[in-house]
Nucleic acid binder design. Structure first.
Length: 892
RNA sequence: GCCGGGGUGGCGAAAUGGCAGACGCGGGGGACUUAAAAUCCCCUUCCCGCAAGGGGGUACGGGUUCGAGUCCCGUCCCCGGCACCA
């Protein structure tokens, strides 16, 4: 036998990548029936510089799905692009003097090369970057449509101000009271901002979560529901004592406790306060307001924040019984939820209970537990906490004696008849603060003039293009500091708007859009397949027919960290696109797969400053016991011990990252792909292990060697195409194994994209393929099946082997070969081995013909020598025989 | 506190209510080699036993069932999200 070809991943991978690209086989047509089409999408990356392991995992999963679906005959749309506006580009400008544009596009070029080197099967003709003028222009058009639809407004409000970035942050960009990017403190500041009216869709966004059930992970749907936060209750008006012109409206979910109100609390920034605080208390209230405003929203209302309040000197009147109760300004009452005023019932609300105790406010019981032993009631009786559960109404006028749940509605109705209250619904969801005081984002297409104030630009004046001659010193907004950009047109003339008395000087809005804007519709833009042309082929932001053809995305894959932000914004945006006539589809993603994190072990020591000092695994030597269990570790450099930490998500700060490029260079893309898919199911975390990578590589080498060893011998042999019943011995066993493997692999893919199980099935099949003991056509069947089953996961090596096994060497031969099929009739042997349980315990095994069933099977079991032995002469009281599965005897 | 997801060998993990631990990693032993690497073969859930064999075992406690890792009830622990939201 001649020398077999060595496995050289670098060569074959690049060869096939070029062949695929040249043949254009991953481009897709738009004119096939929708049920023959499949849109699989991975969350596009921010071009930070180079790919990390999280990207590799995300995109490998998506690519394996795309390739699998193609082999199943689908026309697969599998696009990729760049979320290329954003802060890091500006930070690079500040730190290194690199222009954001240059930095961004250089990163894109490098990362695109890495994606290609991984062999991902993207339709590259659809690629775009969000910072491309064409895409930004389309987004400005959409923005103006949203303005027209009333979905955009300006509002001055307390916003989160990042002291590190000198800009406004969205609530969700504030983590633990600190800026999510820089970790710098966040304070509250009053500023006018642009808002998108996402709350207009609150109800539809909430209802949509029910339709998405089954397609989306429960965790994500729950998070979105919590975030939207629908709350049903009542508004109740409390007149202010001595101020007949003012009434304070509270929102409550507990109208049943109305008779127990002993004080009312109000947000310190509530507008009505100025009118009703008497002079005697003005100073105290102002001091409290200042104190509250000095800290971030988190420090004010977070779990560690102290509940504080100050008596305003004013009293309000309980509309139910005329009782006069004090009004407190309290730090935990927020102005923009509900009405900013809360009725307080210490007896039946834990927070009110604590507050009342602190300030010596009375507690008035109006609900009594039905069961006097109720744990919470007992605690309440002991004066430890409020009683918040339902019960029977007491001391509540005509409602006394009713069940409290019924009284909620009864009291609301009673108040409504006299106009003192009404049933209402409140949402936790706030409108989306869109504006950012930054350079590297899409400009908001508004101008401002003396007479007209803010005016949207006419569409023919778009696009608003960012200036390139800007300076970055890390403070404020470079656009605002630019000498001419805000006041001149693209061709350098003074910027004007048409005022009532002719042209009037105008100034551009210098705020740019939040980058979640771009990621809210990129998936729709991919469906319009002319993204490489500067004019994008159509004047409209979307080609509606194409968008409606492909949307919703069949499978969207990304990290769970986007559960509320990106995924809720995108759902909102799709509805807004529909309502502005750009698309017909209202939900963007049919199925969502959240892949787990890539983790690695950590090693550390207590550092000098009390914080841990982390070490790269390369620097550490681990000590194992006889069973291979890690017992301790030492630093190679000094031989002293280090702490073996938990396995944690890869991060630079913990020094437990691996550069995927190194992995590709050492083992090839196929090994990287195989490792990441085999280590765990997609939604679970994977733990990085160099040994496991080697194991994946070893498997590929074994498949390679086996195929190459047989390729020449089998060159003119066709795969076995007969029926297993015409075979015997090892040949029959292998053919059955082939059919069983295809079934297992197919089930695993269709159920959960359980690539790890598919790969395991392939490994089993390979372990059974012993060519010397088999007919050539059976070997050929085994190998060609194996190669096709592995192809979606490790496409390069499979395509090379497919060619060498005579399947053809054109770029699309493997796709055309298709995913293998199986015949259930050829999966099982004629004899079935039945495990035998006696009284629930395993006692042995018997072999019976598979064809036996019913009474004949039972008869055969009863007469079997092994059965007689395990029964030890005792009578069989009950016999359960599950055909092909198990025999269970109850004896005694 | 509330919501969601988990808990299976030394490790990653498999198992439509039907032989728990497939497959892989690590570990042990062997072959090849001057040697190492690479490769190949065998063993590897725990306990008792030289062995044949026996017993235990899917976080813990109950339950349903001929039969439970899987279904039901309760408890503990871990991970993630939300949290003065009235």
């Amino acid at each position: 036998m001649s020398e077999i070809k060595p496995y050289d991943p670098a060569t074959i991978e690049v060869k096939w990548q070029q062949a695929w690209e040249q043949a254009g086989i991953h481009e897709v047509r738009d004119d096939l029936p929708r049920d023959k089409c499949y849109y699989v999408l991975e969350m596009f990356p921010y071009p930070s510089g180079k790919l990390h392991m999280g990207h590799v995992r995300n995109y490998t999963i998506g690519d394996a799905v795309a390739r699998y679906k193609r082999m199943r005959g689908f026309a697969v749309l599998h696009p990729m692009g760049w979320d290329s506006f954003g802060l890091p580009a500006e930070q690079a400008a500040i730190e290194r003097g690199a222009h954001p544009q240059k930095w961004t596009y250089e990163n894109i070029a490098y990362m695109r090369g890495q994606l290609k080197r991984m062999g991902f099967s993207y339709a590259w003709s659809r690629e775009f970057a969000c910072s491309d003028p064409g895409y930004a222009h389309r987004e400005q058009q959409i923005f103006l449509d949203l303005v027209e639809k009333g979905l955009v407004y300006r509002k001055s409000s307390l916003v989160n101000w990042s002291t590190g970035l000198n800009c406004v942050l969205a609530n969700e960009q504030v983590v633990d009271g600190k800026c999510w990017r820089t970790g710098m403190p966040v304070v509250q500041k009053e500023l006018p901002q642009w808002y998108l009216r996402i709350t207009h869709y609150a109800d539809e966004l909430l209802r949509g979560t029910d339709e998405l059930k089954g397609g989306w992970p429960d965790a994500v749907l729950t998070q979105q529901r919590n975030w939207i936060g629908k709350s049903e209750g009542a508004e109740i008006d409390f007149p202010v004592d001595g101020h007949p012109e003012v009434k304070l409206t509270v929102f409550t979910t507990r109208p049943d406790t109305l008779f127990g109100v002993t004080f009312v609390s109000i947000a310190p920034e509530h507008a009505a306060l100025d009118k009703i605080v008497p002079a005697s208390h003005r100073a105290a209230v102002e001091a409290f307001k200042a104190e509250v405003r000095a800290v971030s929203a988190h420090d004010r209302t977070g779990d560690t924040a102290e509940k504080k309040g100050v008596f305003t000197g004013a009293h309000v009147i309980n509309p139910a019984n005329g009782a006069l109760v004090p009004l407190y300004a309290a730090n935990f009452v927020v102005a923009d939820y509900g009405t900013g005023v809360v009725m307080a019932v210490p007896a039946h609300d834990s927070r009110d209970f604590a507050f009342a105790r602190k300030y010596g406010i009375p507690v008035r019981t109006v609900i009594q537990a039905v069961d006097a032993q109720h744990a919470e009631w007992v605690k309440y009786q002991a004066g430890e906490d409020a009683y918040t559960a339902p019960g029977t109404m007491v001391d509540s006028a005509q409602f006394t004696g009713q069940p409290s749940e019924a009284a909620k509605k009864a009291i609301t109705t009673w108040l409504a008849t006299s106009g003192k209250g009404r049933a209402t619904v409140t949402w936790r969801l706030r409108d989306w603060c869109l504006s950012r005081q930054r350079y590297w984002g899409n400009p908001i297409p508004f101008v401002r003039s003396e007479q007209l104030g803010y005016t949207p630009l006419p569409k023919q004046d778009l696009p608003v293009v960012l200036p390139t001659d800007v300076t970055f010193d890390g403070t404020g907004n470079p656009l605002e500091k630019h000498a001419t950009w805000a006041v001149t047109t693209a061709d350098g003339r003074p910027l004007t708007v048409r005022g009532q008395k002719g042209p009037e000087a105008a100034r551009r809005e210098t705020d740019t859009m939040d980058t979640f804007m771009e990621s809210s519709w990129y998936f729709a833009r991919y469906t319009c397949h002319d993204n490489r042309r500067a004019d994008l082929g159509c004047a409209a932001p979307l080609d509606k027919a194409k968008a409606d053809h492909w949307l919703p995305v069949d499978l969207y894959i990304g990290g769970i960290e986007h559960a509320v932000l990106h995924l809720l914004y995108a759902r909102f945006f799709q509805k807004a696109l529909a309502d502005t006539g750009h698309a017909g589809v209202r939900e963007p993603f049919k199925r969502l797969l959240c892949q787990g994190m890539v983790c690695m072990e950590t090693y550390s020591r207590e550092g000098a400053n009390g914080r841990p000092q982390w070490f790269y695994p390369d620097e550490v030597e681990v000590v194992r016991d006889a069973k291979g269990v890690v017992t301790s570790a030492v630093l190679a450099a000094d031989g002293a011990s280090v702490r073996v930490g938990r396995v944690e998500k890869m991060s630079k700060s913990k020094r437990n990252t691996v550069d995927p490029q190194k992995l590709i260079d050492t083992y090839g893309a196929d090994t990287a792909r195989l490792f990441i898919l085999f280590a765990a199911p997609p939604e679970m975390d994977v733990v990085w292990s160099e040994d496991a990578v080697k194991g994946a590589h070893r498997f590929l080498k074994r498949v390679w060697a086996l195929c190459q060893d047989q390729a020449v011998r089998l060159a003119s042999t066709a795969p076995f195409a007969g029926h297993v019943k015409d075979l015997t011995g090892a040949d029959a066993a292998v053919v059955r194994k082939v059919h069983a493997t295809v079934k297992k692999a197919t089930d695993a893919m269709e159920r959960d994209f359980a690539f790890n199980t598919t790969i395991a099935a392939c490994m089993e099949l390979m372990n059974e393929l012993k060519p010397e003991a088999l007919k050539p056509e059976v070997v050929k069947l085994g190998l060609t099946t194996l190669v096709r089953l592995l192809a979606p996961m490790v496409p390069h090596v499979c395509q090379e082997l497919w060619a060498d096994l005579g399947g053809g060497s054109r770029a699309d031969d493997l796709i055309k070969a298709g995913w293998p099929t199986y015949d259930p009739a050829q999966m099982e042997a004629d004899e079935a081995e039945y495990p035998v349980q006696v009284n629930g315990k395993m006692k042995g095994k018997i072999v019976l013909p598979r064809s036996l069933a019913g009474a004949a099977l039972e008869q055969a079991v009863r007469e079997h020598a092994e059965i007689l032995r395990v029964c030890e002469g005792k009578a069989i009281r009950k016999l359960i025989v599950v055909p092909g599965k198990i025999v269970n005897l109850v004896v005694g």
